[in-house]
Write a protein that binds this DNA or RNA. Structure first.
Lengths: 354, 354
DNA sequence: AAAATTTGTGCAAACGGTTGCACAAATATT
DNA sequence: AATATTTGTGCAACCGTTTGCACAAATTTT
């Protein structure tokens, strides 16, 4: 966090406000006012300054600005196991883009192997960002307090800290679980199974809860749960093998996410020689782009990334305008995407590529 | 780039050096010296200060540091069409992690729809970073000059600007093309084809060049090139269909990258009912994680991401120590990964999952 | 024991902006 | 035409550090 020893400068001579001031025969204050909204400055001089500034590529030094205004444009993004699920990088890319368009700058704080988000959070807080977005991770409640003391708002994206009054934007995982349950039951299946993702994540928990509750409501009681697993292809692959080594094989499987589902599917079709959906239906969650590929054509629940980004930006805007805006959890519903990995009940079959 | 209007602060009262100074009965200078290496300070007072600082969570204000030292820890990362290829997010995640471990902070500058890297580069330069890494994109030569004037080193990752003396770290795409060519010829194929990626990218160009050159060297002259395409699943899918609508069907296809190859493969197997590799061999480039899945088991050339990151960090270290270090292009070789999408010559068959 | 050196600390001037206050010029009000 | 108001600009203090310089105290050398 400490500035690097700066042996390296090839005559880095930065243009500063004083230069413009001298050149245009005005004071430094006036230069500053040309770049600050809501200040008294004549349109003429402002135009003159901005034009000249543009011509020589002057921009006010952001460090000095931060120092004087006690503000900055930085939004920290804490990311952990981002490479696991192709969905997170996408979220990161979109988020940072949306932030930039709103005038913020995204600074990345990856959680290294063997670290926890709590370890890197202080590094983010050192920049005193107005917001830190925690992507696909959670932090301790102490850490949330620490952030709050510094005036930084923590926003959890895609996960949340149960019971803690924090900002969060999540997909309606429970609704997704219910939708899948409904769909599988409608397909005529009665022996269902769930392949779990990473334990103790709110995503995994809520998807299972929604799924199992809806099953019960619909009178389906034969619901097996394959607990040990994480959100990965391999985990899905192995879980499917374990599951089908048992005597009571399920007719349909709901997997904690698409990656897991694709793994399970490949195990069933490859290693076990089963047909999907003829022998067994498989459904996932997220609707990652691979799920639309003809090779798998996975039925899934669409993760409403677009809207979640939008909601996050709205949240940021709102908090920014009203510091006393109370923590809320925004839950965004997605929608069922039926493809050909689940048995068609009425011949419905969606089959888009890539 | 301008600090946000700061209506939002819930009593953000930051701990500053003066507080420590008063509390410990020393001067602000002394506090500063406890955090700055190579300065005269007695071990006792230093320990006392650091201990107290840690207990109350004090960290020197990075903006003030940047201002006084004329240095900062920020490295800009310009990213464009990152979501297209799962390989880029991975690179981004690893890069930012490596940077953080080296004491830098990665600031993201995504190129929005309809923009060019040239448009966002100035925003990055405003922070006067010692380095800006341009990921999977190129910029105009004017822009490189502009960056150099400000003292910022541009490092191109995965692409490069031909003819321009800039820093770049790339995979040995030509070698990869040659390796694939060799492999396909060794498999006994004589009618080959190439499905191109995004035109005018150095990656696409170099892969094709290596491939076609090696084919010629090996005496194989029947090499068709399907030009129109980009780096996407759909593009590969369509290209394969076009290619097989012609009378002279190839025996083996080399695709510009794995995503394209997976698309092509799905078209061949799904829509055309062909068997891979029995009817046609398919090879890709990058070795993205999906390529290892049993469902596709794609022969490919491994993108040496790990080493490329390492090389990039070495470059950064070196430039940082020697400002006059001259621009170089680091080209990192990968290696062939033979799986079962290409006809086995001697029964070799690699088949790892996940 | 005096002189020379080393060591640790404090003072004050930067770094590059922003902004409250003062004030002259321009404009509006009587 | 005199007064009141508005508008635009400059001065100077401040944001939170770092660091050259000065200097007293501690240590080493003669």
């Amino acid at each position: 966090m400490k500035p690097r020893s700066n042996k390296s400068k090839r005559t880095r001579k930065r243009i500063v406000a004083k230069h413009l001031a001298d050149e245009l025969g005005v004071s430094i204050s006036t230069i500053s006012r040309a770049f600050t909204p809501d200040t008294r400055i004549s349109p003429k001089t402002k135009a003159k300054i901005l034009e000249y500034a543009a011509s020589i590529g002057y921009q006010p030094n952001p460090y000095a600005q931060s120092l004087t205004t006690q503000n900055n444009t930085i939004v920290g993004i804490v990311v952990s196991d981002i490479s696991n699920n192709p969905f997170y990088p996408e979220a990161l890319a979109r988020l940072s883009d949306a932030l930039r368009q709103a005038g913020y700058n995204a600074m990345l704080f990856p959680v290294s192997e063997g670290q926890t988000p709590d370890d890197v959070l202080p590094q983010a807080l050192a920049f005193e960002p107005e917001f830190v977005i925690v992507l696909a991770a959670t932090v301790s409640s102490q850490a949330t307090v620490f952030a709050a003391e510094g005036g930084t708002n923590l926003i959890f994206f895609s996960r949340y800290v149960p019971g803690s009054p924090t900002f969060s934007v999540t997909c309606d995982n429970a609704d997704g679980g219910r939708a899948i349950a409904e769909h599988l039951v409608e397909c005529g299946h009665t022996r269902l199974a769930y392949i779990a993702g990473t334990p103790k994540t709110s995503t995994n928990r809520d998807r299972w809860t929604g799924f199992s509750e809806r099953c019960t409501e619909l009178g389906v009681t034969d619901v097996h749960k394959e607990e040990t697993g994480i959100f990965s292809y391999d985990s899905g692959y192995q879980a499917a093998l374990r599951m089908f080594a048992r005597s009571a094989r399920p007719e349909a499987i709901f997997c904690a996410n698409d990656i897991v589902a694709l793994g399970a599917m490949d195990a069933l079709r490859g290693e076990l020689g089963l047909k999907v959906p003829d022998d067994v239906s498989v459904a996932g969650f997220d609707n990652i782009f691979m799920s639309g590929w003809p090779s798998h054509s996975l039925t899934t629940y669409n993760y409403p990334l677009e809207q979640m980004i939008a909601q996050t930006m709205m949240l940021i805007e709102r908090i920014s305008n009203d510091p006393d805006y109370d923590p809320i959890s925004v839950v965004v519903p997605g929608h069922l995407v039926v493809r050909s990995s689940t048995r068609a009940r009425n011949g419905q079959d969606e089959h888009p590529a890539g």
